[in-house]
Design a protein around this nucleic acid. Structure first.
Length: 592
DNA sequence: GCAAGGTC
């Protein structure tokens, strides 16, 4: 092992027998994410050109200062190499990073080309799997490389142009009204994130409560009171409710039309992904998604848990999960449960539908009793272990009885649950599933006397303000950001003071600031038929990038149409900038 | 001073 010029990177020399190339002298080294970043040449820097020019400006690849040692190490080690083999994550970004590595290597060795560069395909680090990857390399995937390059260009051009436009334009026109220190940024991910928060806020503010009416029945049998709810749930017309109620009231009995008892179960969780970890830490521990991810990363660097950024919700078949369960038996808290699993209660985890082809689900690797960990690291470690043990358990089993009564023309029902086997629930206290009161024995066709029949009324409740787990779920569902960046985008809209985090008894809530609300209202007012505050443009881009990967579209075609689309949107915004300013003053006035 | 993506 030799040190490199970067303290995180070591160079390892060994020999290896490759199936295709025979015995080779190998140097294995590493990078730390992307090596290069896109930027505009100096003459297109901030304040040096009209922001609208950035849609057509040249773009250059730059090695940022903190990556110079990484690029230099690749160049040093590649000198004299006959072949290059890429072992980065097997996802789109990993493919592009592989291409960046090839460019860095070519700085010292132009004999290296895409023709003698090989790509190992692997998604976890089991020995067998890694050896198979070494023996069956493929080529770098041009489609994936092109797709990432297109994404980078679109993000840069749109982000830089709109951010400069907003920061310069808004501050100049709102001198004395807007904080002159502020940076007003735009990004294809941060604006939809802001949009979700504003949308919810507006729905809460504009909510008009609506009265509704419903029928409720009660029977008393075997001295047990059973409350039955209406099959229609509720109606919003008082007259309709009254007419139905009068009709029913002529009958003093209801008839049992259906009674059934069926087994039911509460499913154990799917193998843990990053998004799920962040949502659940936010929900159960009131941690921010960012704090949860940071803690998980620390745990990973200390060797306690697997790689924390993954979208995969199924374990590789070859993984020895029982061994991982066994390591948890020494815990004073969940050790007994792990021991039970080892003694025959182990069950193969459920198989989810997501696979990022790069990492397995998050799981504990090494046991720790938590000493030496921070408070958040302890919480996150315990969550990861309990989630993993729950995955390797059986579903909870129960029995559900449902009874349906016919009262005149209307149907009513009640159900009772008996939990028979708790299984994973014993190690996973975050999920609640409890037996309800046992229903009395109803018999099909039986006429039941009613102890109470009521026409009740209620009022619809407003939606609640946005919570962090809800926001994370919305971003995930709409393709805003990735497992690794969702928390960053939330931090970004907070840092820009577009969104404010308000403490509440149930956990933090997100509401837009006046500035955030003004931007969303302003952009929505300026534009027709296209929205910068909704997730659709990002989704369209992701869809086009998928087409590039699949070879249905070329990078240049996607870039041409996407950049043109944003150039046109930018032109509209630039011509209607007064509307943004008006929107800001309007929001301020409304709040006074 | 700008994006979003990767990561110790």
């Amino acid at each position: 092992m030799r040190q490199s010029g970067n303290k995180y990177i070591k160079n390892w020399d060994f020999t290896f027998q490759f199936a295709e190339h025979g015995q080779c002298n190998v140097t294995m080294t590493a990078v730390v994410g992307h090596i290069t970043s896109l930027d505009f040449p100096a003459q297109f820097g901030w304040g040096k050109c009209n922001p609208g020019q950035l849609f057509g400006a040249p773009i250059v690849e730059k090695v940022p200062d903190d990556k110079r040692s990484v690029a230099q190490n690749i160049a040093n080690e590649a000198r004299g190499a006959a072949k290059l083999m890429i072992w980065t994550d097997c996802d789109r970004e990993g493919e592009y990073i592989g291409w960046e590595i090839l460019q860095a290597a070519r700085q010292s060795n132009t004999a290296l080309t895409e023709e003698n560069t090989w790509r190992a395909q692997f998604s976890h680090l089991e020995t067998q799997h890694v050896c198979h990857a070494a023996a069956h390399p493929v080529r770098l995937d041009r489609g994936a490389i092109d797709a990432v390059r297109a994404r980078m260009e679109v993000d840069l051009r749109t982000g830089a142009s709109f951010s400069r436009f907003l920061t310069e334009g808004m501050k100049r026109r709102l001198r004395g009204e807007l904080n002159q220190e502020a940076t007003l940024s735009y990004g294809l991910c941060q604006f939809p994130t802001l949009g979700f928060v504003c949308d919810r806020y507006t729905r809460v503010r504009l909510f008009v409560p609506e009265p509704f009416w419903y029928l409720e029945l009660e029977t008393r049998k075997e001295r047990v009171k059973t409350v039955l709810s209406w099959a229609r749930t509720r109606v919003f017309d008082r007259l309709v409710a009254t007419v139905i109620f009068r009709q029913c009231m002529q009958l003093l009995f209801a008839t049992v039309t259906h009674v059934a008892t069926a087994p039911t179960s509460k499913w154990r969780p799917l193998p843990l992904t990053t998004v799920e970890l962040q949502k659940n830490c936010a929900r159960y521990f009131k941690m921010s998604g960012k704090a949860a991810l940071d803690a998980a990363e620390q745990l990973y660097l200390k060797g306690f848990v697997s790689y924390p950024r993954t979208e995969t919700d199924s374990f590789p078949r070859a993984m020895d999960l029982r061994k991982l369960v066994q390591r948890q038996t020494q815990s004073a808290v969940w050790g007994a449960y792990a021991t039970e699993l080892g003694n025959g209660k182990f069950s193969d985890p459920r198989v989810g539908k997501h696979d990022d082809k790069a990492h397995p689900p998050i799981h504990p690797v090494v046991f720790t009793d938590g000493s030496g960990l921070s408070a958040s690291e302890k919480k996150v470690y315990e969550y990861i272990v309990r989630h993993f043990l729950a995955c390797c358990s059986q579903d909870a089993k129960g029995s559900q009885t449902t009874v349906t009564l016919q009262w005149g023309p209307e149907k009513f029902s009640a159900s009772g649950l008996t939990v028979l086997e708790r299984n994973f629930l014993d190690v996973f206290p975050y999920v609640k599933w409890a037996s309800s009161k046992v229903l009395p024995q109803f018999v099909h066709g039986e006429e039941v006397a009613l102890s109470r029949a009521e026409l009740k009324s209620g009022v619809t409740a407003p939606p609640q303000h946005m919570t962090e787990p809800e926001l994370i779920a919305l971003m995930d569902a709409n393709g805003i950001g990735t497992d690794a960046t969702i928390a960053d985008h939330i931090e970004k809209v907070l840092a820009r003071e577009y969104v404010v985090k308000v403490a509440a008894r149930s956990g933090a809530l997100f509401v837009p600031s006046e500035l955030g609300m003004a931007l969303v209202k302003g952009f929505d007012a300026m534009l027709e038929g296209v929205s910068l505050t909704k997730p659709f443009l990002r989704k369209e881009l992701e869809c086009d990038l998928g087409a590039v990967v699949a070879g249905r579209k070329t990078k240049d075609a996607v870039l041409a149409t996407t950049v043109e689309k944003f150039r046109a949107v930018f032109a509209v915004c630039a011509s209607k900038q007064a509307m943004l300013v008006a929107s800001y003053r309007e929001v301020i006035k409304e709040n006074q």
